[in-house]
Design a protein around this nucleic acid. Sequence first.
DNA 1: GCCAACGTTGGC
DNA 2: GCCAACGTTGGC
Length: 167
Amino acid sequence: MAKKSKIPQSKSGNYWLVKSEPDVFSIDDLYAAADQTTHWDGVRNYQARNTMRDLMKGGDKVLYYHSNAQPPSVVGIVEVVREGYPDHTAFDPKDPHFDPKSKKVTPTWYMVDVKFLEKFTTPLELGLLRTVESLAKMVLLQKGSRLSVQPVQPDEFATIVSMGRES
DNA sequence: GCCAACGTTGGC
DNA sequence: GCCAACGTTGGC
């Protein structure tokens, strides 16, 4: 059983996690997308916005989490391929994420582009992650944590990738 | 389907 | 600036 030996590294040293409902856009949808890339649009939370606009850098590695799934799980890794730029879906009155207070000259909402990197051999269920002592401080596992774009510590990232590659 | 936790809005 | 009301997230 060949294991990939290297944990993907962010050039910036920063790691992240993004949530998506698989019924809306799963990691398989990303795998099947043109260039295996998508823009991470529709985020309407200021903290997540700030992360995408100011902090996520090209080459940053990002865990992909399926929320509102059965069971909710971390399912793979994606990579930032385009840094923060205005979320155009906020400008479109016909779009469900339309926000009239976001103007093209002074956009309120930003997004990044992410590209598929790897799908784990085993989805890492939330319940399992809660049993791992070294992950206890993960933002994802904090009570009431709803942030859809969130930081991950380098050691947490490495632990999760190693777990996800086990068969 | 329920509901706790959270973020935002808006009256005062 | 306070805070009640509301809408949303997301696990269970």
